[in-house]
Design a protein around this nucleic acid. Structure first.
Length: 464
RNA sequence: GGCGGCAUAGCCAAGUGGUAAGGCAGAGGACUGCAAAUCCUUUACCCCCAGUUCAAAUCUGGGUGCCGCCUCCA
């Protein structure tokens, strides 16, 4: 498996610290709102990475945090008339609703900052003890000047950063790039007691603390959006390596942005679409396929038209699956004939091609292409009269590959009796060549979202 | 000012030395009572200019255009 490592700016062969095991941390959402599809991209792509590595037999321990205390949380809670904790609980629940819809599996741990205050305080204390942090008023700052190697991840050095700095004037800091580890309480804000007085953790520290707590001082992979490279991940490295003296993460993975009209989708620009909003018009699985159709490090433009394209593509996948399941219903158990054998012999190649794509820095776009190649092969060769074994093999191959990408989660389900009766009535009408009646029933069902397709093996239905 | 990314058909998008995967849309055909699904056929001067090479979308240099980070942000 080759992965592009932001730390080295090269594609490297991935070698886990412990053979067969992967420990990975991915930055999760600040839970003050529904998340938008820009936020969703890392959730989806790193979920796919995790699924793929598990498919390859790795034991993956995956941690994704919830930031449940910060300025935005406090402000939003105030606006909503909720406590910060109530706000967090609400949007953590909503996170899971949308994440489930997108087919994102739960992490092994979803730690929250507020549940690790003691750990955070101990961590900050450790940095103080090492002379890498200092108290200024009621705040505690990380001393970037005292830490060697600041800027390694983002390819910046302190001087250049300061030259272009658009940072707030803050007299309390020794160095403009110093960042807060512990924020002293302001009136009306939630706070926890600490050696430096009541306050709350800064943003960056929670990830260092929770990553090392759940995964160890050196982890295999740390991931997130490109906008986290600086300063968030830079600061995580400084804190973690400052505190432990060990490398923090071996591989840093960063996904590209989702753009709208070629501009980055972001909360501050206000040009964002929440997954929740999009779910009103599209199955979130469409969003998932949309994201996986391009390489994760490339920016992708978002538009309704592109989702419609993805939706049509997804339908093609479902059609193939539904067709196989339909064929399987009354397929015979019999030995494969010569042409079936040839088809079966070709099946493993799709898996190989798929894996080759995935091994190349998670090239899901290429991998999706392989799935469509497989679909065509299946549509050509797996037709009426094929043996049950052949159909099953095709279905297994398709489900296996789409499963790794977390696609085709929708179940075919069943129809209620009333609709079944209508379908039967239409079948009778067709036998009598009463096309007018047959077509009117078909139209009527379509109104209800049931599409009928007549095949040589009888009528097949699907939901719109 | 510093650092970085991208430019492939109507729309999306892989491909990083041997003359272009895949999807969507379109056109024609097959199948169908009609459809749908499916299959077949069809649609690319790979941003521009130089250079390296037997050979470049792919490497090098120079342009042009767009975007991002350096501030909260996935």
């Amino acid at each position: 498996m080759k992965l592009y490592n932001t730390l080295t700016k090269t594609k490297e062969e991935f070698i886990p610290i412990k053979p067969g095991e992967i420990r990975m941390y991915s930055c999760g959402p600040t839970v003050y709102n529904y998340f938008h599809i820009g936020n969703a991209r890392p959730f989806v792509i790193f979920d796919v990475f995790r699924r793929y590595m598990e498919h390859k037999g790795y034991k993956v321990t995956f941690v994704q945090n919830f930031t449940d205390i910060d300025d935005k949380m406090i402000q939003r809670a105030k606006e909503e008339g909720l406590t910060v904790q109530e706000l967090a609980e609400k949007f953590i629940a909503e996170y899971f609703v949308d994440a489930d819809g997108l087919g994102i599996r739960r992490a092994d741990f979803h730690p929250k900052a507020t549940e690790h205050i003691d750990d955070i305080i101990a961590f900050v204390q450790k940095l103080m003890d090492k002379g890498l942090a200092y108290q200024a008023g009621s705040d505690v700052y990380f001393d970037t000047g005292a830490y060697e190697g600041y800027g390694r991840l983002s390819g910046q050095n302190l001087e250049d950063l300061e030259l272009g700095a658009r940072i707030d004037i803050n007299d309390k800091k020794k160095n403009p790039m110093d960042f807060v580890l512990w924020k002293g309480q302001k009136p009306g804000e939630p706070a926890w007691d600490s050696p430096w007085g009541p306050g709350r953790p800064g943003w960056h520290i929670e990830c260092s603390v929770m990553a090392t707590k759940y995964l160890g001082e050196t982890i295999d992979i740390h991931s997130g959006g490109q906008d986290l490279i600086f300063p968030h991940h830079e600061n995580e490295i400084a804190q973690s390596e400052g505190a432990t003296g060990k490398p923090f993460a071996r591989y840093w993975l960063h996904n590209g942005y989702i753009n709208v009209d070629n501009r980055k989708m972001s909360k501050s620009l206000g040009n964002f679409f929440t997954v929740r909003d999009i779910s009103k018009d599209f199955d979130p699985e469409v969003v998932r396929l949309f994201m996986l159709s391009s390489h994760y490090r490339n920016p992708i433009n978002f538009s309704r038209e592109l989702l419609e394209q993805a939706q049509s593509a997804l339908e093609r996948l479902y059609n193939a699956r539904n067709n196989l399941e339909h064929l399987l219903k009354d397929a015979e158990e019999k030995p494969a004939d010569e042409s079936e054998k040839q088809f079966l012999d070709r099946l493993p190649r799709f898996k190989e091609d798929f894996e080759r794509a995935m091994e190349d820095d998670i090239n899901t776009a290429d991998a999706v292409g392989v799935i469509f190649d497989l679909v065509r092969e299946i549509n050509i060769h797996v037709t009426a009269g094929r043996s049950a074994g052949t159909i099953r093999a095709a279905l297994d191959a398709l489900k296996s590959l789409t499963g790794i990408l977390g696609l085709l989660n929708r179940k075919q389900g069943s129809l209620d009796g009333e609709i079944e009766e209508l379908i039967e009535k239409r079948e009778q009408a067709r036998k009598m060549k009463n096309w007018a009646l047959a077509d009117s029933i078909r139209d009527q069902l379509k109104e209800q979202g049931i599409v009928l397709e007549d095949t040589p093996q009888g009528v097949r239905w699907k939901r719109l």
